[in-house]
Simulated scan of single mutants.
Amino acid sequence: MKFFPHLLAFLLLAMVGCNSDDADPDQAMYFPPLTGSEWETSSVSSLSWNESQVPALIDFLEEKNTKAFLILVKGEIVMEEYFGGHKATDTWQWNSAGKTLVAATTGIAQQEGLLDINTQVSRYFGTGWTNMPIEKENLITSKHLLSMTSGINDENQFVIRPNLTYLADAGTRWSYHNVFQRLMDVISAASGRKFDTYFDSKLRDKIGMDGTWNFGLVFNIYHSTARSMARFGLLALNEGKWVDAQIVSEEFFKESIRSSQDLNPAYGYFWWLNGKSKFMLPGSQTVFPGSLIPNAPADMYAAMGAEDQRIYVVPSKKLVIIRMGRASDPSNPSFAYSGFDQELWQKINAVID
């Protein structure tokens, strides 16, 4: 049997290449350029999804007041739909889904040595930032703000000092509260820069997002295009990494998508976590058994905002799904969680399974 050295070398290289791809499947992940509108696409048919179910998904989205909807697989756009005159260049509010931007920025500030989430908040801008007894205020760390366990009374969501009264010791009560916004003040004090300036340079511009913060007395809300929301979702899918740059430390990001406390295991650092044994919801102390969204993948984590602003991230399927729009149910616009998620995932599953 005669061997040809150049053919043998080619076969060996091919084998090495195959083994390398198998060992590092993330090599196939796509990241769009930082500037311009270029973004690689894939198709429903190329993924062997059920094309016949796509019209039903689109009809549902339109019926439920959606403005923008995207599905990414390994970073490539598979579906991109806009409704009601909304365009790809139009911006929309993230509402509480934008809390995850604050969590990521906190992680960046910590990895730069500017702050430590386990340090009491008052160390960064002085005591008396609440209307609590000083010994109770001093129990509150940035981690308590990240995990919604500050113990501050949640009866009034206006984040002004007279409203920040004592209800429980920090770490002993989970309660969804706008006081998380003081974390933005921690970052500003620690960095010596306005929060949005620091955010823009350390996160937004690093991954090619557009968008701006709208600061108010009650809410600090981010506005951007749907594609920018998808860029952040892609960063989250890759655990804080963009191409070869680790924007948010992997250690901090993984910590963000783990249960941040035992009271509500379905909550990380502003990320909602699926597949846990129980969960709590904003505005309630009721503990519900089972998974947050039972028909969504168990490993999914999500940024969830009022009026059903959503970033769903599913590592096992390399999926990022974006939904922007008005409330699916106008009579129930304010909660970060709604029955809409169950209905939407029923439609999504019909397409992707």
Rank of each mutant, 00 (worst) to 15 (best):
F3S: 14
F4Y: 08
H6N: 08
H6A: 04
L12V: 05
L13R: 15
D22P: 03
P25Q: 03
D26V: 00
D26W: 15
A28N: 11
L34Y: 10
G36Y: 04
L47G: 05
S52R: 15
V54S: 11
F60K: 12
T66H: 05
T66N: 09
K67T: 11
L70F: 03
L70N: 08
I71L: 06
G75T: 03
M79A: 06
E80K: 05
F83M: 07
G84F: 02
H86C: 01
A88Q: 11
T91R: 13
T100I: 08
L101Y: 13
A104F: 12
G113P: 10
L114N: 09
I117E: 07
N118V: 04
N118R: 11
T119V: 03
T119H: 07
Q120K: 15
V121A: 04
R123V: 05
Y124Q: 01
G126S: 02
G126R: 01
P133V: 03
L139Y: 04
K143I: 10
L146N: 02
E155I: 08
F158W: 06
V159D: 15
R161G: 00
Y166A: 07
R173N: 11
R173Q: 07
W174S: 01
N178C: 12
V179M: 04
R182L: 10
L183Q: 10
M184Y: 01
M184T: 08
A189Y: 10
A189K: 07
S191G: 02
S191C: 09
G192E: 12
K194H: 12
F195K: 03
D196E: 11
D196P: 05
D196S: 13
T197I: 12
S201V: 12
S201M: 09
K206P: 09
G211H: 13
N214C: 11
N214H: 14
G216N: 11
N220G: 06
I221V: 13
H223I: 00
S224E: 02
T225S: 09
T225R: 13
S228E: 01
S228Q: 03
M229E: 08
M229C: 05
R231W: 12
L234K: 13
A236R: 15
E239F: 06
V243Q: 12
V243P: 02
A245D: 14
Q246G: 11
V248W: 10
V248I: 13
E250C: 00
E251F: 07
F252D: 06
F253I: 04
I257F: 06
S259M: 10
S260K: 04
D262T: 12
P265S: 00
P265K: 11
Y269C: 03
F270K: 10
W271S: 00
N274W: 06
L281N: 02
P282K: 09
S284P: 06
F288M: 14
P289R: 05
I293L: 06
N295Y: 01
A296K: 06
A296E: 02
Y301I: 07
Q309G: 05
Y312S: 13
L319T: 03
L319G: 04
V320H: 04
R323V: 00
G325K: 06
G325M: 01
R326H: 15
R326N: 15
D329Q: 07
P330L: 05
S334R: 15
W345C: 09
I352Y: 01
I352A: 03
D353C: 00
